[in-house]
Design a protein around this nucleic acid. Structure first.
Lengths: 175, 175
DNA sequence: CAGTACATACAGAAAAAACTGTACAAACTA
DNA sequence: TAGTTTGTACAGTTTTTTCTGTATGTACTG
């Protein structure tokens, strides 16, 4: 009887987590898996997940892999256990900063490289003999790209702040 | 002749931006639209976008709406112009913090509410007459939820740091 | 070694998302 | 007012993603 309410309370949180995991570019299904694993006391096997979520084992396998790639879940080893065991990483603060850093760093890097390459190309073009129209266009684009580059540098510093864990000092001081 | 290289340089950056806009949960198409608008000197009309990207006007309309909802693009008004005009918001730093704050705040809020509600429910259950098994389960879940709640509070402070623009001071000091 | 349990690669089915063309409403023009 | 122009709602199509069942390779067990 009571069991319902306990179950219900847990389910509410799982569902909420599931819904909001899109911030991590993850399907609600994978989000629900994460939520379920979070509340499980012991590390889970794929079969337990399958039973819990009423989905195919294949989905559990790929879902868990997704979560591992996101640094949100660990594979754990236990003596005498044949099945693979998985559990949610316990440090959410670390999980957050990891995710944030990995994803933003990658995006920044790619855009920065593209900008740098294009800036070099435009500089070269400006050195040569070109029409006024092209020249103006090149100069305008150069300005835009320089702005972007400056922004990416700044963003990199933000990521540094998290990666170096200095963010924790900053937030602490706020109190 | 030269035109090719100038065009090429611009296209490289647009393509890179397009690819990395998935961080903002946006389609490459919408990302490309954003990139194209970024380099356009003047605000663009839907028809210009359609010609530029070789896509339907409907797609441009919905794409622009998406970007406006993300606070990345503004509708601008110009005397004597019948068509709607749109341009990329010029302050990328603001765009970043806006996006970050809006999305994370929403996710935090929802999860926090769910946790609070469930915590209250579990407390109530614990007050009543229940089996030991249920009691233990409730206590364990309460612990998990309390941890989550603490994390969400912390994350809220991180968002505050960006929203209040204090992050700019923090990064400046780093130099 | 044969037999079993397990995870996952793969192909196909189901579901969701993106994109387009048409149609229509609102705003403007003459 | 009638005639344009413009943006978007909507339905249908195409593309992409998610999910499942089967099949296979690997590792363990006796």
């Amino acid at each position: 009887m009571q069991d319902k309410r306990v179950e219900n309370a847990r389910e509410r949180v799982i569902e909420s987590i599931s819904k909001n995991m899109d911030i991590y570019s993850v399907t609600p299904s994978v989000g629900r898996l994460y939520g379920a694993m979070f509340f499980e006391k012991e590390p889970m096997t794929l079969d337990e997940m399958k039973d819990k979520l009423q989905m195919s084992k294949t989905s559990m396998s790929t879902g868990v892999r997704t979560l591992i790639d996101l640094n949100m879940v660990d594979k754990v080893w236990r003596k005498g256990e044949r099945k693979d065991l998985y559990e949610v990483k316990s440090d959410w603060y670390q999980t957050f900063t990891d995710f944030f850093c990995i994803h933003w760093r990658k995006g920044i890097e790619m855009n920065r490289d593209a900008c740098k390459e294009s800036i070099a190309e435009l500089m070269e073009v400006l050195d040569g003999d070109i029409t006024n129209e092209d020249k103006n266009k090149a100069i305008e684009d150069l300005e835009k790209m320089s702005y972007a580059l400056g922004y990416y540098e700044w963003l990199n510093k933000v990521v540094d702040l998290f990666e170096s864990r200095k963010i924790f000092d900053v937030i602490d001081e706020e109190e």
